[in-house]
Design a protein around this nucleic acid. Sequence first.
RNA 1: GCUCCGGUAGUGUAGUCCGGCCAAUCAUUCUGGCCUUUCGAGCCAGUGACUCGGGUUCGAAUCCCGGCCGGAGCACCA
Length: 489
Amino acid sequence: MSVKKEPEKGLKPLDVAEGEKVVMRFAPNPNGPPTLGSARGIVVNSEYVKKYDGTFIIRFDDTDPQTKRPMLEAYDWYIEDCTWLGAAPDKVVIASDRMQMYYDYAEKLIEMGQAYVCFCDGGEFKKYKDAKESCPHRNESVEVNLTHWKKMVAGEYEEKVAVLRIKTDIKHKDPAIRDFGAFRIVKVPHPRPEVGDKYVVWPLLDFEGAIEDHELGMTHIIRGKDLMDSETRQGYIYKYLGWDYPKTTHWGRIKIHEFGKFSTSGLRHAIEEGEYTGWDDPRLPTLRAMRRRGIKPEAIRKFMIEMGVGETDVSISLDTLYAENRKMVDPTANRYFFVWDPVEIEIQDVEPRTATPPLHPTENRGQREIEVGTKVLICKDDMESLEVGDKLRLKDLYNIEITSTAPLQAKYTGDSMPPVKKGEKRIRIIHWAPIDGAPVKVLAPHGEFNGIGERQIANELDNLVQFERFGFCRIDSVDHEIVAYFAHK
RNA sequence: GCUCCGGUAGUGUAGUCCGGCCAAUCAUUCUGGCCUUUCGAGCCAGUGACUCGGGUUCGAAUCCCGGCCGGAGCACCA
């Protein structure tokens, strides 16, 4: 009766029947690499499957060789990225391998009198539909429809001439439901070589999905709310075939502030134009880019799970994801100095020495060693605010006082942190780099940064480090120069 | 035009099914403070919300009706 209102953690429970074995799927069209948007589907579905010890299936809905043409490499990329996200599939199904099955069911439905070949063009059919009237082809006999269907499959009609429709209720109050299309003709070969030009008649999503969800024994489906009407449409197929429909949940659109609106085809075009370096360019919302930047899969999982499954459209900022990632990497990320837009500063009255800043401010991970002569590099940004007489501290090195700005010069004023008097602001601390440090390039979503960093950064290949006062970066390569990908502050 | 769905702080969520424990949870952002060493990390604190109007009720974020706002479908895309 009175149920406690405990704050609920994670995903809401699923409606699972006694003894039911949960089967769920993620069903992308591989027309590009998985993005942060895909991650929601991957993570949430796989998380439910983990929770209920079920089966997680990846199904490639690749039945459109033309408009949203699949990309050959993307099939593997999906598996790769799912595995990276901790969502390795129990089973992988490719729709374009299963065409005969779709044809068999189509034929069966025609024989039952529940599907017909329609020769109306789009506008023509819409008129009938809007008037709640049958088109002339709807009442053709089973025999005639079968003949037409066989000619259609055999490639005897041109594109757009014929389509197979499922009979629903032509007078249904919702126009979206009335006699939807199930197959159309596309004479463009499929990109997969094993499929190629074997088929000219391709199923539409509502049909393909309906058949597959039943064939694969799906118990629960989570999908975008743009597919809400699908259940009603597909329900007719299920009714004709005597099947039970899986339990469905819908979620709203997800928009990410940092990336705004993007389309796979738009991104592909921009990459081809050389606007981006590739599908893992740090400015892109792909999972490959996230991985390269050092975003942990666990952070993405947590982020998506906490977002939950709601029907409202969400417009989120990546700050939350970054914060999650930062918590995970902060204890293990070593600290280094990286000076972008470096300028030289000469320090007078000082002996060369070795600075030994700690690798981490709180974890006891040892220290780095930096040889310092009489000159160091500091950021141009820091330099620009300096005036003669300013006192500041070079972090983990010593204190200086600016003596000249026109060649930038300072004098050494002591090793220890000056005591802070009450009410006074603590001395300004800036970071620096040795004059003979390693060249470093940072590729970030907000631009490219070039400068000099500590030489020891070269030992951190593939690790996530923090460049002090700059942000967390993954060291991507250490060849002639160090290349780092920016993760977040 | 027809049909469907949704609306809790800047953002995302918990709570809504089964009204009282909700002057509303958690996270993030923002602001401020702390730190013998990051103006950017860390630590601490603070600001900040039930779309509006009616109704039912002793009592409504929760139930009902209406308005407003937002989203989606009506494709030979997925």
